[in-house]
């Protein structure tokens, strides 16, 4: 009976102030979508770092006229280096093959470049890709080395971009969360005001505090949960139309976002949405109802 009473009060409450309820749901949804997106980007960046750094190489390009002795010396030095995990030598022919592969769509370029014009190089996998600097310092001055190029520096720029995107989403999530919070506080105040006579009577006859507060808190929680459901649909839309749609050309670059990962964010979004609403409502009631 009491459960039924509380639930009907919640529905009446949400209806009574339907414009505020909708505003609350929308801000909550945007905030939670941003939060979910930020979380997804965060896990993706971590995944991709793992993926890329495992395969990342430092290329040591040799001078075209490096002698065989110089090449052999460098190889010995690299193989004995504790920072190095794996060494591959790419001679001029191999380099030409890769070049052909890379520029197969530009026959003009291919026709003018000869194998002899390409530098031979060592492709080095590091034990720890972050230690690129040490390798670069050691080898760029060695006889016969032209330059040391690290792929991870390029990747770092890409990752910086992702991290910036993630931070923007997070900031937007927090800003919207603050807006949602203020809306919840305001809605609860309006609701408490419109039910002030009932609340006064309830306090007078000794209704328990939870019984007085529950409809208000639940009203906010229900709005928060609806907001998180809307947010889930927004994330589904983002994956379907943006990630799998417009950005599908870049799929080789990004680690794919699975449906599982999208749905796993829902409990987090729902939990955060419900918790923020409940705490805000409860704190507002403390000040406003003094129960």
């Amino acid at each position: 009976m009491r459960v039924k009473y509380v639930l009907s009060e919640v529905l009446v409450g949400l209806w009574r102030n339907v414009t505020m309820t909708v505003a609350m749901i929308i801000t909550m949804a945007v905030s939670l979508t941003m939060l979910g997106a930020s979380g997804l980007i965060y896990t993706k960046v971590a995944d991709m770092k793992q993926l890329y750094f495992d395969n990342i190489q430092v290329s040591i390009f040799l001078e075209k006229e490096a002698s065989e002795q110089q090449v052999a010396d460098i190889r010995t030095k690299l193989e004995g280096d504790p920072l190095v995990r794996e060494v591959n030598y790419v001679d001029k022919d191999e380099a030409y093959k890769r070049f052909q592969e890379m520029f197969r769509d530009s026959p003009d370029l291919l026709s003018v470049v000869k194998a002899e014009q390409l530098p031979q190089s060592f492709r080095v996998n590091l034990v720890n890709p972050e230690e690129y600097k040490a390798i670069s310092e050691q080898y760029s001055t060695v006889e016969g080395v032209d330059q040391v190029v690290d792929q991870s520096r390029v990747l770092d720029k890409i990752f910086d971009l992702f991290t910036a995107g993630q931070n923007i989403a997070l900031v937007a999530a927090i800003a919207m969360a603050v807006a949602a919070l203020l809306l919840v506080a305001n809605t609860i105040q309006v609701a408490a005001y419109s039910k002030r006579r009932e609340v006064a009577v309830m306090k007078l006859v000794g209704a328990s505090n939870w019984f007085i507060q529950a409809p208000f808190v639940l009203e906010a929680v229900v709005a928060g949960l609806i907001g998180s459901v809307v947010g889930l649909f927004a994330l589904i839309g983002l994956k379907k139309f943006l990630f799998d749609g417009a950005l599908s050309a870049l799929q080789g670059l990004f680690a794919p976002v699975s449906w599982g990962e999208v749905f796993v964010t829902f409990p987090v979004m729902a939990g955060v949405g419900a918790l923020i609403s409940a705490v805000t409502a409860w704190v507002t009631l403390r000040f406003y109802l003094r129960v």
Partner: peptide, 24 residues
């Protein structure tokens, strides 16, 4: 008086019972 204007006499009195957990 402090009665609830949108409830009848019966409902006003019953309200006081129901909010402290008494059944209908």
């Amino acid at each position: 008086f402090r009665l609830l204007p949108n409830r009848t006499a019966y409902e006003n009195v019953a309200f006081a019972l129901e909010v402290i957990g008494k059944t209908k």
